[in-house]
């Protein structure tokens, strides 16, 4: 697939615009599924996916083949989702920093891996996260992208990504408990 992608990308760069449709047919649903997970309004996902493919086409000559084409598309999707959310000024639920800092990591980890009935509130808690936080957990926990690569995509250091990931898990813990009315 990768070699084939490389060949198609070369053809597009050499002027065969129509070959780009092959890449789009191959990756559009994948990108769309990721964008749906990142943005809070599902209706925006289609528009963002369109922008992702148009921007990818415009910048195809800059693709250096160091990552896979899908990872490169994910990076564009993340940037598009972030700028789209900024334009729309989507509100997120603020959480007290002290609450997050005082939570032991182990408690959060065991809770999120358990079959606790309060986890029914997890989808709603994910909805309350910021676009960055949703992107982080989607890339790492759903797409299975290594944290180092996720950090590269989000243009942050690997250690910062680790901290952010733990903070997001803690935030989910707090939100789930708030939403199920059993926190505090």
């Amino acid at each position: 697939m990768e070699n084939n992608d490389r060949h198609i990308i070369r053809r597009v760069i050499d002027g065969s615009t129509e070959s780009y449709k092959i890449l789009m047919d191959r990756y559009s649903q994948q990108v769309f599924s990721l964008v749906v997970k990142i943005v809070s309004r599902e209706d925006d996902a289609e528009e963002i996916t369109q922008d992702v493919f148009v921007n990818a086409y415009r910048n195809l000559e800059k693709f250096d083949f160091r990552s896979t084409f899908s990872t490169w598309l994910y990076r564009i999707a993340y940037n598009e989702a972030v700028s789209h959310t900024r334009r729309k000024k989507v509100e997120t639920t603020p959480i007290d920093e002290a609450t997050l800092n005082n939570l032991p990591d182990a408690r959060v980890d065991s809770f999120l891996e358990s079959d606790n009935p309060r986890l029914a509130a997890l989808p709603e808690a994910i909805e309350a996260l910021s676009v960055d936080e949703r992107a982080l957990i989607s890339f790492h926990y759903f797409e299975g992208i290594p944290l180092k690569e996720v950090a590269d995509m989000m243009r942050i250091g690997e250690s910062a990504a680790k901290v952010r990931l733990m903070r997001t898990r803690k935030k989910l813990y707090v939100l789930i408990n708030k939403l199920s009315g059993k926190y505090e």
């Binding site: 997970k37 996902a45 358990s114 079959d115 997890l122 989808p123 994910i126 926990y141 759903f142």
Partner: peptide, 12 residues
Amino acid sequence: QSPLYKALEERG
């Protein structure tokens, strides 16, 4: 099998 994976999978 993690609840987080399942919740993300369910999303959209």
